[in-house]
Simulated scan of single mutants.
Amino acid sequence: MSECLEFASSSPGEVCGLIIDNARLYRCLNVHPEPKSHFRISDDDWLAAESEGEITALFHSHPEPINVLSGADRHAQVLTGLTWLLACDGVVHEFRPVPHLLGRRFEHGVMDCYTLFRDAYHLCGINLPDFERTNGWWLRGENLYLKNMSANGFRQIDASDMRPGDVIIRQPFPGADPCHAMILLAEGKVLHHDCAGHLSRREDYRLAYQRQTHSVWRHEQCSSLNLQGIYADISAKSL
């Protein structure tokens, strides 16, 4: 990480490189025509890095204090399928290769509402653990959401105080545990993924959802939650 930060400080524009065997940085030349705000690794550098070992991650820097991946970054990251390291403001941030947030197909325990919630927070700079969940937990009184929210830095807030980034837990039908998570976005939108055959999506926080709302939660690091990570990914999905 120290070598990445040293490299990032060596240029007023974006620098880039490849991590080989999870161990060392292969420095590349930024061949983008606008290197102050973008980067591109040449085919020659990529092939040269591959000849020295397995490429396990990609590294680049943001000279501006933007500590999340841009839309262009996310578009490229999904194509590479690699972990990306980002140097910004003297810190190296690591982003695992998650699928775009919109348009996901539902598979419980693999690609469900918690996966979306966890991945979205990851892209915004807050890392949450995964947890084991078997189908039907919401009918067995396991209360997985409520237990895990409290255990991972969230506190319940009054719904009248909601702001973008807060997590809304819904109780979709009577008699079940609160079992569905949505992230509140700007302009009264929510990001979520339910099991009713819909793809993950952004839509209005409509009256039916408001009536099903069980509780609203805010993370202890909410001040560092950069929602640009979500908005950038949404823009990247449209490319």
Rank of each mutant, 00 (worst) to 15 (best):
A49S: 08
D44W: 06
L58S: 01
M162Y: 08
L79V: 08
L146V: 13
L25T: 07
S223P: 01
L207T: 11
P12W: 06
S37D: 07
R96I: 11
E132R: 07
T56N: 01
C124P: 06
E107L: 15
L239D: 10
G103C: 08
S224M: 15
R133N: 10
V92A: 05
E50H: 04
R74T: 13
C222Q: 08
T213M: 14
Y114C: 05
H100V: 11
I234V: 15
R218V: 09
N152S: 12
N135Y: 13
K237Y: 15
I183R: 01
R133S: 15
T115V: 11
E6M: 08
L82N: 01
H32R: 10
G136Q: 14
C179A: 15
H62R: 03
N143R: 15
I66T: 11
Y121D: 02
S223W: 05
H75Q: 11
P99Y: 07
S10E: 04
D119Q: 10
Q210P: 06
D43H: 10
P172M: 13
L128N: 05
H192N: 12
V167H: 03
R155V: 12
C179L: 04
T83H: 02
P65C: 07
L18K: 01
I126T: 05
L191W: 02
G165L: 08
M111P: 00
C113R: 11
L227Q: 05
S51F: 05
L85M: 14
D194A: 10
G109C: 10
P129S: 10
D112S: 07
P65Q: 13
L29R: 13
D177I: 12
I234E: 09
A236G: 09
D194W: 02
W217D: 03
I157P: 00
E142V: 08
P178I: 01
H214K: 08
Y121V: 01
Y209K: 14
E187A: 13
T56L: 00
Y26S: 11
H60F: 09
A23M: 09
V31N: 01
G103S: 10
K147R: 14
E220C: 10
I20N: 03
A49Y: 04
E132C: 04
E107C: 11
L47P: 00
W138G: 06
V78R: 00
F106S: 02
K147I: 11
G175E: 07
N30M: 01
D233P: 05
R202C: 15
G71M: 05
G165I: 03
G81D: 02
N127Y: 05
R202T: 14
W46R: 11
A72L: 07
D166M: 02
L207V: 10
E94M: 03
S235D: 08
W217Y: 14
